[in-house]
Design a protein around this nucleic acid. Structure first.
Lengths: 209, 209
DNA sequence: CGAGTCGTCAAACAAGTGTTTTAATTGATG
DNA sequence: CATCAATTAAAACACTTGTTTGACGACTCG
């Protein structure tokens, strides 16, 4: 079964290269040569570069979203009150567990998520929303319920503030960490950074009007 | 004096197009044709595409940074205690005033700032840090002084959280606004969004450890 | 007027892009 | 073993990219 192998090697290489340089800055020739496969293999197996990009996202977003939904199911079944902190903690914990299980680099996925938003590839945004939008609407709904007394519009803006803080810092984690290390000699693990992020994000959601 | 005119037209067109599509997705031919000038004009006046990108940033970052420094001078001269809220408010106010004065679109510059960070054009990041780094170190220093009892590493992480929330949301302002309008029928002005952002960001900086 | 700089222009350049084609190779099935 | 589909391979395709060239006109200044 060589097919699965070629497809996997292409996805592995594309994932790394896209995260490092972005989509348009990464050529199919670079991908196929680092994957050790023929140039035509991308178009043969995926159809086009666009579809390859979507496949890269699908491979990590599908299991991650499923885990998140399962976690939300569990939390809701216990029907103890769901605090915002707990929900954020669940979100980050699921993300980390999912990525580490597959032995992949969490920052890389944050970089990819960031690219999906900033690098305005319209097709990608549409693909992600249509495929995973419902699950994240559900998360937002639960979070909103944990924050009574917040009007919907303010809530949604703060949700985006939080999303921005998360994606931006984690996708630049290596760069920021290097700066802090040089200035203060302090190493920061990703774990520690998330432990800083959760209470900070929660405080932002809870801020007085 | 046709020279100034051509240079200005190129900068105007490049500014808009870069913000809309990113750097690599915008070709010199697109820029020169929407600017109504000859293709060779870019290389003639700026040298290369890289230097054009830097020139676009220089044109709006230089006056903005100067205004910010002047504002900080004024605030410090009054030597009343500088709260974090006041500092953030100064920052946003200066940014808006600077951009509106020139009749340009504030979101566009946030998009450009976001691109400067995400689209990992190394040369741009180096250019900005070397040119404007000192001024922003000073802002960070004042903000840090307004938040005693916060260890430096946590402070800097929260500073990046804040930066991420700001750049991310404001650079996607139009998209987010469209979503909120569809879901809640609520229009949000940029002014209102900043008035939501300031207290939220301040709460994040002040969060308990 | 004539020399010389500065800016503009059309054209060409070399290199790189995603995709397609056609042929070779593989591996399983009847 | 022969057959046939699935996969890989090399080459070419058509097009776009940033940059350079050399001719041409406009202009100032001695």
């Amino acid at each position: 079964m060589t097919q699965t192998d070629t497809v996997g090697r292409i996805l592995d290489a594309a994932e790394v290269l896209f995260a490092e340089r972005g989509f348009t800055e990464t050529s199919l020739r670079t991908i196929t040569s680092t994957a050790g496969v023929n140039l035509a293999a991308v178009n043969y197996h995926f159809g086009s570069k666009k579809e390859l990009i979507q496949a890269v996202f699908e491979r990590f977003l599908t299991p991650f979203t499923r885990s998140l939904v399962e976690e939300l199911d569990r939390r809701e079944a216990m029907d103890e009150p769901l605090s915002a902190e707990r929900l954020l903690d669940s979100l980050y914990r699921v993300a980390m567990a999912n990525l580490e299980r597959e032995g992949r680099n969490p920052q890389r996925f944050m970089r990819l998520l960031g690219l999906a938003y900033t690098q305005s590839q319209g097709h990608l945004r549409r693909f992600i929303v249509s495929r995973y939008g419902d699950s994240y609407q559900r998360f937002a709904g639960l979070l909103s319920k944990a924050l009574p007394g917040l009007d919907p519009v303010t809530f949604y803006w703060r949700l985006y503030f939080m999303l921005g803080a998360t994606i931006f810092t984690l996708s630049s984690f290596d760069a920021i960490e290097a700066i802090l290390k040089e200035d203060f000699g302090a190493e920061s693990s990703l774990q520690e950074t998330l432990e800083r992020l959760v209470p900070a994000a929660a405080a932002m959601l809870h801020a007085d009007l």
